[in-house]
Amino acid sequence: MPTHESAGQGSATVDHLAPDLARTMYRHMRTARDLDTEAVALQRQGVFPAYVSVRGQEAAQVAAATALDPSRDFVFPTYREMAVALAYGVEMVGYMATHRALWHGGLYDAMESRFGAINAVVGGPVPHAVGWAVGERLRGGEGVALACFGDGASSEGDVHEAMNFAGVYGAPVVFFCQNNRWALSVPNERQVAGGSVAARAAGYGMPGVAVDGNDAGAVHRAVSEAAERARRGEGPTLVEALTYRVEPHSTSDDSARYRDEAEAERWRRHRDPVDLMRRALIEAGYAGEAELDRIDAEARARAEEIRDGVSTAPEPDGSELFTHVYRETTQELARQRRIWQEEVRL
């Protein structure tokens, strides 16, 4: 498996995947790549105040999503899971509305989608996932929670507490760490003691698996096995997908200030997950160039459709600031609303 220090030639494994599934995964990866490009452009145009790119992590995200069952499982995302949302079937205009700052957590239905609200708290989705998973087991359900986090979040107390809790109670959780090498501006070697997030799993009584995060087939296998293990009542698993963040942390970041951009370029050129998946499909005989070109064109059109939808989506009424704060309103909230209404009338 290529390490973070080596961005040499690699490959994707698809032989264990059904051809239809492999092609679907490629379609999602290609759509996510194009939508990511559109989203960065929308930020540059002032439509989005900020955006966090998923470029280079499409394989890990799409593979994890397609390894789950949307009818019973539940995903708890960070702010960088756009490709997970896309592959999981989330309504994407509503999802992308968060990046336009139309609504906290998105305009999609989190309960219907079984995909939690976008969470910008570092490590924040992980205890939420464990709490849901414990509740799912107590009610006798067969659902599994996917807890998304990055290598930087793996150093947060919330993540350690959640893993320990899940290990003690045997919660049906897949802890899914996308180790993209950079915790914003801090590299792995300066914030992950021992160099491995997966190795920490042993301390919480669960298996830890490290996989090539740019190999969609490898990630799909690891997450599928972890989900089935949880479904059988055998407890949580930690999956570490080793990948690389080729773009800055966000559109507000200048990654050239803290890393050698030549390294990112090597990953772009030699370890691009979309290119690896395309080559694997051809080599396995799952698709030819003409079919993949058609999928590329359809993916591009879909990304443009989502872009146009979120660009023209109407802004919610300002009164919605007060509608989902508490189950029952309070006197203080009512007072704040009256003040807001008076200021709006001015």
Rank of each mutant, 00 (worst) to 15 (best):
R278P: 07
R271S: 12
R269Y: 00
L346D: 13
F322T: 03
A280P: 00
F322M: 09
M277A: 14
W267D: 00
L333H: 09
R337M: 13
R266K: 15
A256Y: 01
D296Q: 07
Q336N: 10
A334G: 01
R278F: 08
L276A: 06
G285M: 05
E265I: 02
I339E: 12
T323N: 11
Q341T: 15
Y326P: 01
D272T: 06
D254G: 02
E328Y: 11
E247G: 03
R337I: 01
S311L: 10
L276C: 05
H249T: 01
R345W: 11
Y326T: 05
S311V: 10
R266Y: 05
A287R: 06
E342N: 08
F322I: 02
R278D: 02
R300Q: 13
V246G: 00
D317T: 06
V246D: 01
A264E: 07
R257E: 09
R257G: 00
A334N: 11
D272S: 07
Q341L: 15
R294G: 03
W267T: 04
T330F: 11
D275S: 13
A301Q: 06
S252T: 07
Y258Q: 05
I295N: 06
V274Q: 09
G285C: 03
E247P: 08
E332H: 14
S252M: 14
S319W: 08
D293G: 07
R278N: 04
R279F: 04
